[in-house]
Amino acid sequence: MKSAFVTVGTTSFEELIAAVTAPETLQVLRSLGYGRLVLQVGRGAAAPARFRTAAFTLEVFRFKESLAEELERADLVISHAGAGTCLETLEKGKPLLVVVNEKLMNNHQLELARQLYRDGHLFYCTCSTLLESLKSINLSTLKPFPPGQPEKFAAFLDRVIGFE
């Protein structure tokens, strides 16, 4: 039984939570083989009620110290465009569908999502196209994401400071 994890980060993204828990979305997830859906809802005012049936489990929480465990268990991650979550998810090699929050100031989050999408590392959509995306995406077409290189930053800093 596959598991999907939805995360909104440190603030809230109620439109995403509403879109992903809409009856038709849950039905599509079930038809794709997902039997477990976990929601991290952040500060959102309305948190959907958890439920459990023989075929489907919905789990809900606001925050956890680390999302590593949830990401590890997930077969699909549906996330806001936050850099931390995107990078952590891609580094764990998990398929990622980013849902862009069009209401955020300047909407700069689009830049990273669009670039990583262009580079073939993730899928992206908006709340209104979530359902369509879930139906159409093929997770096996995603490209692996090479790790970042903080050691290059350390070497640069040592050099400019004079620690050689």
Binding site: T10, T11, A83, G84, E88, F153, L157, I161, G162, F163
Partner: peptide, 29 residues
Amino acid sequence: PRTAPLSLLVVAGSGGHTTEILRLLSSLS
């Protein structure tokens, strides 16, 4: 050239910003 140790002030921020800055710090000696 500065001599070690060197005191560092790190400005953290919510969510992604903190994750990113800790990644940068992870490789410092």
